[in-house]
Design a protein around this nucleic acid. Sequence first.
DNA 1: CGTTAACTTGAATTAAGTCAACTGTCGTGG
DNA 2: CCACGACAGTTGACTTAATTCAAGTTAACG
Lengths: 228, 228
Amino acid sequence: MIQPAYLETFLRKTLGVDPGSQVADELRKLASTINVQRGCMAPIDHSRAMLVYVAHGATKLVASASRDREQIVAFHFGGDLISVPENGLHAFGLTALIESTLIVFPLNAMIDCAQGERSIMRLLLERAQTALYRCRDKAVGLGRKNAQERLAAFLIGMTERIESVQDDSYVIDLPMSRRDIGDSLGLTIETVSRQFSELRNAGLIETEGRSRVLLRDPGALARRAGHI
Amino acid sequence: MIQPAYLETFLRKTLGVDPGSQVADELRKLASTINVQRGCMAPIDHSRAMLVYVAHGATKLVASASRDREQIVAFHFGGDLISVPENGLHAFGLTALIESTLIVFPLNAMIDCAQGERSIMRLLLERAQTALYRCRDKAVGLGRKNAQERLAAFLIGMTERIESVQDDSYVIDLPMSRRDIGDSLGLTIETVSRQFSELRNAGLIETEGRSRVLLRDPGALARRAGHI
DNA sequence: CGTTAACTTGAATTAAGTCAACTGTCGTGG
DNA sequence: CCACGACAGTTGACTTAATTCAAGTTAACG
């Protein structure tokens, strides 16, 4: 079930557009709000670049390097803006990790109609920069870090994005599976599992069930992440 | 020796700004044009994000994962725009591969003064998207491709950017060393060398001296690159 | 409470890294 | 213009981190 309010909130709060303005009207025409169930791929037209706003939920942006070799390029959470490229070297797909509401715009049409609005252009540019910086950090991890450093960096990064504090140690409820973590870190599911065990044995983390992780010593974890 | 004309050309041709306008004047005040010798790091203030235009030359953007583990995040050539982040998780440095002329702007100040100009904002956004897409493709390679696929993809990618045709086969003069290629592909110098030899033995490429590569069978090379 | 899929653990394999020796290229100075 | 030196690149032998294959466990859901 789609809350039409999501689009209005996005226009007003995120883009800072006057709901009565002509730009708002044009953007409403371009937008399609979709609800995607856990594990389902968002039905996105991949023949042109799209801009997706995560109104609510969590998603993964997956590239297929080839048959059964997938690389998760980024995870996204409520409030994030995702730029989904048209298919090029690799095929991209956007999949919901939990039930999510997404607002989808054709990127170029959206820019055409927003280019007069300073606040929108500025926001898009800032978000693109953030995505670029995150992607670069990911590249550094994939290129030059070992399995343990990658997992530690992943946990630290996730904590910054979905943290909730509980008696002086950070608690995160990961919406993604071990397979997703592996596909994001360029590792196999088994290696991810072994590294979880090592961090657990070292007393740096605890786990509860499949998804909950408690960071018992964030400082030590950050050191293992190989951040200078 | 710095050609002052570079800045004017950048303002007029790349940004599409009227040289007599107030914006042009403000941008001139923000810009610093520097000449960087082969192998030297550009003297950039890393306490804030910078935007660098490569007026002429070739550069590498390097992140230090930690002592003697460097990851090259991107290569750039004349006409490219680079967004150099302020130091965060990793320390970044921009180094010239050959003697280069760079025009450096503080990113935020530049956006402040350009945000009224549609063409500039649009250009910056497009360039940021391109950088993001390239970075994602790099992440896919680093996460899910083997050494040979990485080198093949690298050669194909470089050909698209610095190609010159010579009797029906592509010829590229790589401005970077084997070490740079390794640091970009997340491999050691020895592995890069072995993969060059394999591609050579397979008849897909020939090499002349240290830097020249002839692509004898670009189609087969692209197939080895693992592009779908 | 049972079933299934997700996760974990262990043993064997492999791709890439490391260490070490050798060779080729390129720039310099005789 | 050639010879030399220094460094970049290549090749080989060995090591290792992560993958693969194969059993177990455990968590979550009906």
